[in-house]
Simulated scan of single mutants.
Amino acid sequence: MKKWFIPLLLVFALGACGNDEESTVEETERPLPDAVTEVYANYQAALESGDAETLASIDYAGRLTDLPATGAVTRQIAPGDIYESWVNEDEDVAFLVHEMVDQDGNPLPNRLSKVAVKEGEDWSLVITPAALPKDVIADVSELLIGVEANEYGVNAEANARLAEIPEDEAGPIYDQVNAQTDYMALEADNNVFLLMAETLTVEENQTIMTDYFKAYEKWYTDNEETLREAAATENPIQYIEVLDPLKTKLEEAVDGYDEQLVDPSFG
């Protein structure tokens, strides 16, 4: 089973980048602001009911929220509990890792994450692909230095539970879980920050990644009709088949950004 769908294929090539010395996580005692918790609760309720209008009101980009709203209902998934969160010193940027659960409330193997941004007095979540500014990229990358992506991005207990399913029953279940994983194509790929935190602390890389996020957002808006078709496709195998050519287009849209990034050990 795949761990999660990550549009930015370059992250795998960057796995060996950086210092050889082990990074140390600087734990913060700053709690998640109540306003962020409230916005996340609104996200949970909106996605569970397929309420695209409410999603648009709390989404950083606020566009095409019918795609994740429709996809979540079709895939029978909803956001679960917040697993971990980090908040910057100014308390205007946060990063959340949260569970996704099936129709029975069981956590799925792949967690999602959200960037939360405060603009004025209001907080929003990066739910659909958005052109993130350099300062937000910098803040999130600093928060996540030393975080092990697999520890936070994958629910090991959920993986283990699925591994115990008898082989003759596993096929349809894994088809559904894989389709639920690919649902992430309908939301922003915030998990990229888990995988690239140290790389994105380099100022030059932050500039490059602003262009990456713009390209990712353009892919999303350019392909909205096919993404909408995928979101409404109930059969999990057909759903994955509809998404496959879209993934190819996304790979093409972000191709080359990996070649521009600077190794953090030399940044």
Rank of each mutant, 00 (worst) to 15 (best):
L9R: 12
L9E: 12
A35T: 00
T221L: 09
F12H: 14
V154A: 13
A179Y: 06
L67V: 09
Y216G: 01
A16G: 12
V242D: 04
A170N: 03
E241F: 10
D258M: 07
K247L: 01
R161H: 03
V192E: 02
L96M: 04
A72G: 15
T221E: 13
F266C: 13
A16M: 12
L243K: 04
V136W: 04
W4V: 12
S141Q: 09
L261E: 07
A156T: 11
L246Q: 09
R30T: 07
T128D: 10
E203R: 11
K247M: 06
A61L: 03
D211C: 00
D34H: 03
K114V: 01
D211W: 07
A56F: 05
D175W: 08
E29Y: 03
L250N: 13
V97S: 04
V136H: 05
G267F: 07
D66P: 00
G62I: 04
P109W: 06
Q176G: 15
R30C: 03
N106A: 15
E29Q: 14
A130W: 00
W219Y: 15
K218M: 13
G62M: 07
T199K: 04
N190Q: 04
E27C: 02
N178P: 01
A179L: 02
E167I: 15
L143A: 05
G105E: 07
D104Q: 09
A94C: 11
Q44H: 04
V136F: 04
A138S: 07
P109V: 08
V25Q: 10
N223K: 05
K118N: 00
S265H: 05
T248Q: 14
N42C: 08
V177L: 05
K218W: 06
Y257R: 02
L195P: 03
L186R: 01
S124V: 05
Q206S: 06
L10Y: 09
Y152F: 12
A35R: 01
A232Y: 06
A56K: 13
F266Q: 15
D59L: 09
E99Y: 14
K3N: 14
L32W: 03
L47A: 11
